[in-house]
Design a protein around this nucleic acid. Structure first.
Lengths: 89, 89
DNA sequence: ACAAAACATCCAAACTTTTAAATGTATAGA
DNA sequence: TCTATACATTTAAAAGTTTGGATGTTTTGT
């Protein structure tokens, strides 16, 4: 994992709503954008933007199922980031 | 480590220069602001700002020694962040 | 006491991120 | 086919971040 990826992944975590999404994904396994909209109270375009940011960061995987976009944690990416941090210590 | 701290620590990592500082600290142990200025080519006020951000995030420790401000990794904080991420998986 | 070095603070410009309204596209169900 | 639902995109405003010049403070060495 190069530093540009670390920077991107860290940036994805560095937001209250996206962090909430990640934590909820870790508990629930998967969510779609409507679930997130309900959970956060954010507008639909805003949720769409945050979901895109998370997908682009590599921290979550996305799977289209009909009209819904289901996202789930990319555990490998999270482990990679965690491993990078551990190596700093 | 509550989510506000995770958010802050992640935000501190999510910058090219601050990440470079963290990596260099992990290699060299400690640095002062002049070292960082030389390494990055950034202006002194800009370095001062980044150093402050890192200190505020809790990821680095600071120690005034005369005119110099020596910073070093707060390994516990980094391990905490890493542990938080691992728990998500 | 003076000059230089190291860092902090203030300020403003440039840039990026966050947010939502309006609108567009695709799918599911009647 | 029509309607409703789910999500994406465009656009623009508001807020936040990054950056460096100017200036202030503290400490060190002469």
């Amino acid at each position: 994992m190069d530093t540009r990826l670390i920077e991107k992944a860290s940036g994805a975590i560095a937001d209250k709503y996206r962090l909430q999404i990640l934590v909820t994904l870790s508990e629930k396994g998967s969510m779609n954008s409507s679930d997130i909209q309900e959970m956060t109270g954010l507008s639909q375009p805003c949720v769409s933007h945050h979901v895109k940011t998370l997908i682009d960061s590599g921290l979550v995987n996305a799977q289209k199922e009909g009209r819904n976009l289901n996202i789930s944690l990319n555990k490998e990416a999270i482990k990679d980031l965690s491993g990078f941090l551990t190596k700093l210590t």
